[in-house]
Amino acid sequence: MASQGTKRSYEQMETDGERQNATEIRASVGKMIDGIGRFYIQMCTELKLSDYEGRLIQNSLTIERMVLSAFDERRNKYLEEHPSAGKDPKKTGGPIYKRVDRKWMRELVLYDKEEIRRIWRQANNGDDATAGLTHMMIWHSNLNDTTYQRTRALVRTGMDPRMCSLMQGSTLPRRSGAAGAAVKGVGTMVMELIRMIKRGINDRNFWRGENGRKTRSAYERMCNILKGKFQTAAQRAMMDQVRESRNPGNAEIEDLIFLARSALILRGSVAHKSCLPACVYGPAVASGYDFEKEGYSLVGIDPFKLLQNSQVYSLIRPNENPAHKSQLVWMACNSAAFEDLRVLSFIRGTKVSPRGKLSTRGVQIASNENMDAMESSTLELRSRYWAIRTRSGGNTNQQRASAGQISVQPAFSVQRNLPFDKPTIMAAFTGNTEGRTSDMRAEIIRMMEGAKPEEMSFQGRGVFELSDERAANPIVPSFDMSNEGSYFFGDNAEEYDN
């Protein structure tokens, strides 16, 4: 993207840094990872977990959730003011799984939030270390993106479920800051804005008074975040219109849905970061690795190297396929839920299948599930090659597409044709070009129609051997075009429920 120079890199967003050079960025990201790792080690000690239990991804998720809940100030305040039966607002906890007599047992633990905050700050040299908290939120978000298709949420806001490739980060909490905003897809931002506008339509006082002023500035800020994701002048001009509207209503909703559809071809720039579970960072720190000293990046080879040398386990339900569970977590670790499966298959070195073909449910185990038949197995999170994460949407291309997802959002900077089903997408653009945004709409449609099938995206960008740390010898991959490109292809993934 041309304006790259004016933006802070995501590592800076990730670490609240002012302008830093590459070495400083690597050190501050490393410091953040160190903090998460030290916190995780301490929690495993508190909970008396064995090494194996500490490497269980379900335990990692519970521990991450506990610290996120302990620092969720708004919710904590709300819980104190609106006490609900049987919930102690000062405590947080969740299921911890232990191996007892050759069987997995679930144990519900409860801790004072104050105590968890103390352990977290102690692991982070006394700081609140917001960057580390956001990092864990993005890992949870990436896992949700890989596990669930947001059909219901899309339909509720009037969008087409086939636009799911635009929904990265749709389950990120509001408090995820600049680093969170960077990884949100165009569809996620559109959905947040539509929800806001709908509230304004239904509630006369939404934009009024002292609160209304705050609401208005939040609305304009979200519009600017979305505008910054678009790469064409016409899309940005249309966002200006939406932002400046005196009284946002149905016309703005129409414009936003139009823009979301246009992003299936004229893709937005959305950041991709490899955020790993805390149970990967903990053992690495415990083994003596100093992330701050060595430096770390979320968008280069580092996460690949770390996963190459990590042992992570997962509980497996009786009829689940461990290899499929591994694929789910591998995609989440690489922030690749909406990437082209052919690119992923090449990088991973084994075939990556669409969601609907995987015999696996989510990673988390519900409290009512029976533990008797639970097994555990090693997650295979290694890769054959590594590639640089991208934040450009890439230019655009036609490809055989599917009944489910009709476009992709690249996660890796790797040369390819970008699949999208042009006739299906263009069919949504018939007729409606009147109104105050008509010239911009016409211009956007013209650009979409001009998108050429034979153009290559990320020209000359390749993948790298894991021994090639400096990215000196790019390998331009070859793809098996007979395979499906979309992950949520004609899909039956479970729906995400809060």
Results as ranks from 00 to 15, higher is better:
residue 181 A to P: 00
residue 220 E to I: 04
residue 220 E to T: 08
residue 487 Y to S: 01
residue 57 I to R: 09
residue 87 K to M: 11
residue 497 D to H: 06
residue 438 S to A: 14
residue 167 M to F: 07
residue 30 G to N: 11
residue 463 V to Q: 00
residue 410 P to K: 06
residue 450 G to D: 04
residue 283 P to F: 00
residue 237 A to I: 01
residue 487 Y to M: 06
residue 370 N to I: 05
residue 444 I to R: 07
residue 102 R to L: 14
residue 475 I to C: 08
residue 384 R to W: 05
residue 243 R to W: 04
residue 334 N to G: 10
residue 115 E to L: 08
residue 94 G to V: 02
residue 385 Y to K: 02
residue 186 V to P: 06
residue 217 S to G: 02
residue 328 L to P: 05
residue 83 P to M: 12
residue 348 R to E: 07
residue 248 P to T: 14
residue 217 S to D: 00
residue 211 N to M: 15
residue 79 L to C: 12
residue 172 L to K: 06
residue 117 R to Q: 15
residue 414 V to K: 04
residue 462 G to V: 00
residue 332 A to W: 02
residue 245 S to G: 15
residue 140 H to N: 12
residue 406 I to T: 13
residue 196 M to R: 04
residue 189 M to H: 12
residue 346 F to P: 03
residue 471 A to W: 00
residue 450 G to F: 10
residue 74 R to T: 03
residue 60 S to D: 05
residue 243 R to N: 03
residue 75 R to Y: 12
residue 242 V to L: 04
residue 16 D to M: 12
residue 16 D to Q: 11
residue 92 T to F: 12
residue 99 R to D: 05
residue 27 A to G: 03
residue 164 C to A: 15
residue 167 M to H: 08
residue 156 R to C: 07
residue 289 Y to T: 01
residue 6 T to C: 02
residue 163 M to S: 07
residue 352 V to Q: 05
residue 133 L to N: 02
residue 142 N to L: 10
residue 161 P to T: 06
residue 223 C to A: 15
residue 157 T to D: 08
residue 265 I to V: 15
residue 314 S to I: 07
residue 346 F to A: 13
residue 39 F to M: 11
residue 132 G to A: 11
residue 331 M to H: 05
residue 41 I to D: 10
residue 228 G to N: 14
residue 117 R to F: 07
residue 483 N to A: 01
residue 322 P to C: 13
residue 74 R to L: 14
residue 77 K to F: 01
residue 486 S to F: 06
residue 216 R to I: 05
residue 14 E to H: 01
residue 320 E to S: 08
residue 406 I to N: 13
residue 359 S to R: 15
residue 26 R to C: 01
residue 147 T to I: 14
residue 404 G to W: 01
residue 407 S to D: 06
residue 453 P to C: 06
residue 326 S to G: 04
residue 9 S to Q: 09
residue 411 A to H: 04
residue 275 C to L: 03
residue 279 C to F: 05
residue 293 K to D: 04
residue 399 Q to E: 03
residue 136 M to N: 03
residue 205 N to F: 00
residue 15 T to E: 13
residue 122 Q to C: 12
residue 22 A to W: 02
residue 115 E to H: 07
residue 194 I to S: 05
residue 350 T to L: 12
residue 204 R to N: 07
residue 64 E to G: 14
residue 139 W to C: 09
residue 352 V to T: 07
